[in-house]
Design a binder for these strands. Structure first.
Length: 266
DNA sequence: ATGGTCGGGAACCGA
């Protein structure tokens, strides 16, 4: 089974590229972030005609997430127990929270969580405090999923290592690289989740996001902030992975590239 | 310190 994650920066404006990506790489399950649309605004007809089902959590203007699957969607969940504002969509909208939804594939083998970690804006900002709280609560919830085939995939808005940043000097006093954010990310690894892509796409100068400003992509001035973290049993099934860097090229691209992971049958 | 470019939704805000 081939799974992927991609911050599409608006599913409506990116739908043609999403469909082409799924076909080009023969993807079974795609987790998307920043759908930027309510569920009833999503352009699903083309995806459905390609054999995909869609589960979505449309929470605010910019942080919606979805899972697109052609191997079924069982036991779809939105949010996680303990998630700030869990069960209160209006509060989530008001607080511009991160978003997360998860589903098992049709054979019940893998639970994939599509997650958009809140953007902290600036260290010390209320959104930054909220981001750390959100990650801590997700960690607690994820500990209960560690003994299953679980994939935590998406835009973590954290660059865990210096080599994941094109120029650390430009990130003084910036979010994404603070010790607290990095510790929050590494806590998942300490609990047994593994970055299953990095062994197949080692740095330095390997990124998943390039700002639209200043020709950052053309100059490869990016960040690695999109990750697939696998529980131990899921990580054992990984046979390969890659970042589809070329998807970021040209006009009409998202500012993030997709990340693809291959799994052996469980 | 600021600016640069996108997307959404119709003026800027947030990434």
């Amino acid at each position: 089974m081939r799974i992927a994650t991609w911050n599409v920066n608006s599913l409506r404006s990116r739908i043609t590229r999403v469909e082409a990506f799924l076909e080009r790489h023969d993807v079974d399950v795609l987790a998307v972030q920043e759908t930027k649309a309510k569920i009833d605004q999503l352009p699903l007809m083309g995806l459905q005609s390609m054999g995909y089902d869609v589960a979505a959590a449309g929470i605010s203007q910019w942080n919606g997430v979805a899972i697109i699957s052609r191997v079924g969607l069982d036991d779809v969940r939105v949010g996680f127990p303990g998630m700030p504002g869990w069960g209160d969509a209006q509060e989530q909208e008001a607080r511009a929270v991160g978003a997360l939804c998860g589903a098992k594939d049709g054979r019940g083998g893998v639970r994939i969580w599509s997650l958009y970690v809140p953007n902290g804006r600036k260290p010390g900002d209320p959104h930054y405090v909220y981001k750390l709280d959100w990650l801590a609560r997700l960690r607690e919830a994820a500990q209960a999923w560690r003994d299953e085939d679980t994939a935590l995939v998406g835009d973590w808005n954290v660059a865990p290592f210096d080599e994941d940043v094109f120029d650390m000097a430009q990130f003084k006093n910036s979010t994404h690289v603070t010790p607290a954010e990095r510790a929050a990310f590494h806590a998942f690894v300490e609990d047994g989740y593994a970055d299953v892509v990095r062994p197949f796409a080692p740095g330095p100068e390997v990124y998943t996001y390039w700002d639209y400003f200043r020709n950052r992509y053309e100059r490869n001035r990016g960040l690695r902030i999109d990750f697939v973290l696998g529980s131990p049993s899921l990580a054992q099934r990984v046979t390969g992975a890659f970042i589809d860097r070329e998807e970021r090229a040209g006009t009409g691209a998202s500012d993030h590239a997709p990340v693809v992971v291959d799994l052996a049958d469980g």
